[in-house]
Simulated assay, not measured.
Amino acid sequence: MSQYLTGRCLCGACQFDYSGEIRFTIQCFCRDCQHATGAGHAPQMMMSRDRLMTKGPTKTFRKRADSGSMLEFIFCRDCGSPLLKATSRMPDAIAIYAGALDDPTLFERGQDVFEDGRQPWDQG
């Protein structure tokens, strides 16, 4: 089923919209996502990169994950809000952080991943 999603950063300088299939959703508990979001986990929706349209001043931070893949964390350059995440393991895909959605109720909980990084205060 195709979905239409919109979202933005905290200051509104960056926006995105997506029309297409959601491949899957996850809650990532890895330390990289914890550092990037300032939270215990990062709920994400994985989708086709070529169907995502963005506008605004973003900044990309690249880092090699413990698994060896390259990660890209995409933030608003102005306010620092985390918006998107990509991995070299899926070059044709990109993830939207659920918290950046205009309507976060569209996120449906998926699989928990990298649970070894789950913090004791983030159970549930």
Rank of each mutant, 00 (worst) to 15 (best):
R49P: 07
D112K: 00
P57K: 11
R89A: 13
Q3G: 02
Q3S: 13
D92H: 11
K63I: 09
A100C: 09
C14G: 07
D102V: 05
E21H: 13
G110Y: 07
F107M: 01
R23T: 09
S19N: 13
P82E: 10
I26K: 11
R109E: 11
F29H: 15
M45P: 02
A13G: 00
E115N: 05
E115K: 02
K85F: 14
A65Y: 04
C28I: 03
P91M: 05
I74K: 04
C11M: 08
W121Y: 12
Q119N: 00
R23H: 13
F75P: 03
C28N: 03
Q3W: 03
R62D: 08
G99T: 03
E72G: 06
V113Y: 08
A65E: 09
R62N: 12
Q119L: 14
R23W: 08
K55M: 11
R118T: 03
A65N: 10
R118N: 03
W121I: 01
M90K: 13
F114P: 05
F16I: 10
K55E: 13
R49G: 02
C79Q: 12
T25I: 11
F61E: 04
T87Q: 05
M46N: 00
A36T: 10
G38V: 13
Y97V: 06
C9A: 05
C30L: 01
Y18M: 04
G117Y: 02
G7L: 08
L83N: 11
S67G: 01
D17R: 15
K55W: 08
I94N: 07
Q27R: 12
Q119M: 12
T105S: 15
H41L: 01
L71H: 06
F114G: 04
R8K: 15
A13C: 02
Q34I: 01
E115Q: 07
Y18Q: 07
C14H: 03
K85C: 09
L5P: 03
K85W: 14
A93E: 15
G12T: 05
L5V: 07
M90W: 07
T105A: 14
G20D: 10
E108D: 06
A39W: 03
L83A: 11
G124F: 05
G12V: 04
Q3C: 10
S81I: 08
D32W: 09
D66F: 11
L83G: 12
L10D: 12
F16C: 12
R118M: 13
T37Y: 05
L10G: 05
G56N: 05
T37C: 06
C76N: 07
R64S: 11
E115F: 04
S2W: 08
